[in-house]
């Protein structure tokens, strides 16, 4: 299975690439060994994610899922972001090749990881809210 037009679009024109200097939450997931690393920056005002940016080392699907994930949570509430599933990212991209599904899982986990960091900075234990962050298997 090849990449959809939407994946190629989000790869070639990724939305929200970069860093947020004064981010309220930063999450990084993945490892260089398996070839994908995502770093997500969130700006949070009250309960709303006002801005989201990312940096990704990885394949076309890794870039596209990061881009789509930021699009799907920007302007949304934290609660909505916590409900973001990898499946939603896949659907928004009009599908992914089976071997690339792990990239969408990584994107979902990157969001949770950044939210986890946000709660930690607030002095709140993130685990009951965000859950455990799943590191990808090697």
């Amino acid at each position: 299975m090849q990449y959809s037009e939407k994946v190629l679009d989000h790869f070639s024109n990724p939305r929200n690439v970069g860093e947020i200097e004064d981010a309220d939450g930063v999450g990084e997931i993945g490892n260089a060994k398996c070839g994908d690393i995502m770093k997500m920056y969130l700006k949070i005002d009250g309960s709303i994610i006002t801005d989201a940016k990312f940096k990704t080392f990885g394949c076309g699907a890794a870039v596209a899922t990061s881009s789509m994930a930021t699009e799907l949570i920007k302007g949304k509430s934290i609660d909505d972001a916590l409900k973001l599933t990898n499946q939603a990212v896949v659907e928004a991209l009009d599908g992914l090749p089976p071997v690339k599904i792990h990239c969408s899982v990584l994107a979902e986990q990157a969001v949770r990881c950044a939210l986890s960091d946000y709660y930690t900075r607030q002095g709140i234990d993130p685990v009951p809210i965000v859950g455990e962050i799943k590191e990808p298997e090697e």
């Binding site: 990724p14 690439v17 970069g18 990084e28 490892n31 260089a32 060994k33 690393i37 995502m38 770093k39 990312f54 940096k55 990704t56 080392f57 870039v63």
Partner: peptide, 15 residues
Amino acid sequence: MSPVWEKMMKGQKYE
């Protein structure tokens, strides 16, 4: 857009 490159430029290493 690579966090790996960012780390390399800061003199840090990726595992």
